[in-house]
Design a binder for these strands. Structure first.
Length: 277
DNA sequence: GGTATTCCCTGCGGGC
DNA sequence: TGCCCGCAGGGAATAC
């Protein structure tokens, strides 16, 4: 569930607490993350590397270390990355614990559903990794590029937006919210969009994501809390997501929920009219 | 090669 | 009260 705004929120908070500190060791939990390409963390993570940068790319968190090494973390659906006192009880489903100096704190990665990922990569290989796995950031995406990407696929808009190679960082919530904002039906084929509609979709993506970042992301059930343990606020501004049966905030028609691309999809059947060319 | 579907995984809520 | 079942979803694997 953590999508671009939630990951950005985590990175901003962690940056203040991690920059300049040194990772002096690592401990692992018993259950393996399903998507981790590191076999033996104790052996593969060199100790005493300083954290020199923290940033986000799509839904990935990048912790850059001295010596051209980066720690990559994906929160999956229930992943949580927190700096806590070393004496604090280690919760169940904690997969990785990084020991930090100076101080007596640890960076812990917990992920009950294990949809997350963690690994190490040489800094010089990062760009190749992004090229193979991710499209542009929504804020760098142009309407023209989105149009070109969509016109090449017969998939519906919902499925296309969830494809991280088309645009990075979008998940189920923000795909629904952006399509509503752009007045586009999620079931429409990518090939059916006009240039103007693609440009509007890009503007809506940026608008929705910027606002969600301002609100420190969305917290549904207890899937996401920021690094300090506080929930996001954007769920209070959802216009269609999880509002099945409620009146559309634009036209008062009832919001509908269908299943598209294997995901619950929410839209207004009146103002997101299915109207391909 | 492109697209659709299934599966992984755990906690929660609803129904009985 | 306690048990069972369905649902949630990111991305890889599999099927078509």
């Amino acid at each position: 569930m953590p999508e671009l705004p939630e990951v950005e929120t985590v990175v901003r908070a962690l940056r203040q607490r991690l920059l300049g500190r040194v990772i002096t060791g690592v401990r692992t939990g018993t259950a393996r993350l399903r998507r981790s390409w590191v076999e033996d963390w104790q052996r593969e993570l060199p100790v005493n590397r300083k954290i020199v940068a923290l940033r986000r790319r799509g839904k990935w968190i990048i912790i850059e270390l001295t010596g051209d090494l980066a720690l990559l973390i994906h929160l999956g659906m229930t992943g949580r990355l927190q700096v806590v006192p070393a004496v604090q009880l280690v919760e169940a489903h904690t997969h990785l614990i990084f020991l930090l100096k100076p101080g007596t704190e640890e960076l812990r990665f917990r992920d009950p559903r294990r949809f997350g990922a963690a690994g190490l990569i040489a800094g010089r290989d990062l760009e190749k990794f992004w090229e193979n796995n991710l499209g542009p950031e929504p804020f760098d995406l142009t309407g023209a590029r989105l149009f070109e990407g969509l016109r090449r696929t017969r998939r519906c808009l919902k499925a296309a937006l969830l494809d991280q190679r088309l645009v990075a960082g979008i998940g189920n919530i923000y795909a629904d919210e952006a399509l509503f904002d752009a007045k586009l039906n999620p079931a429409r084929r990518g090939t059916s969009l006009t240039r103007a509609e693609a440009a509007q979709l890009r503007r809506s993506l940026v608008k929705v994501l910027r606002r969600a970042i301002e609100q420190k992301g969305s917290t549904i059930r207890d899937y996401f809390y920021d690094e300090t343990g506080s929930p996001g606020e954007y769920q209070n501004e959802f216009r269609v997501y999880q509002r099945n049966g409620e009146p559309c905030p634009r036209c008062r028609a009832r919001i509908r929920q269908v299943r598209l691309a294997g995901r619950a999809t929410h839209f207004c059947p009146r103002c997101q009219l299915f109207s391909p060319r």
